[in-house]
Amino acid sequence: RGVAATAEAVGLGARQLHRRSLAAFGYGPKTLARILRLQRALGLARSGVPLAETAARTGYADHAHLARDVRELAGTRLTALL
């Protein structure tokens, strides 16, 4: 679900949701969604699910997309986090 749809679902405007997200987490709702998705992916990968399957289950286009997100969000390689 997108930021606008999420904001509407909780009765806020998109800008207000963004401000509240910044105050609570230090980053916007889109970044929060990326971090939560990465956490789900890491949990699956650490439980033994192959990386390609982990990527597919958590909404990444492929294993390379997952690896890029890890590099961008965590500043390290995927294998280092596993």
Rank of each mutant, 00 (worst) to 15 (best):
L82F: 12
G59E: 00
R71Y: 07
G59I: 01
V70G: 06
T54D: 02
T54R: 06
R68H: 08
G59P: 02
A56Y: 02
Y60L: 01
V70L: 03
R68A: 06
A61T: 11
L73T: 14
A52L: 07
E53P: 05
L73G: 07
R71K: 12
V70H: 05
T58A: 05
R77L: 13
L66C: 05
A56K: 12
A52V: 13
L78K: 12
L81P: 10
A74W: 11
L78W: 12
H65M: 04
R68T: 09
E72I: 14
D69V: 11
H63T: 10
D62Y: 03
G59Y: 01
R68G: 03
G59W: 00
A55V: 08
A56C: 08
L66V: 04
L73W: 10
D69L: 11
L78G: 11
A52G: 08
D69E: 13
L66A: 08
E72F: 11
L82E: 14
A74I: 15
T54W: 00
L81T: 15
L66Q: 05
L73R: 09
A55D: 03
E53C: 00
R57F: 01
A56W: 10
A52T: 12
A80Y: 14
L78I: 15
A61V: 09
A74K: 12
H63S: 08
G59M: 01
T76G: 11
L66F: 06
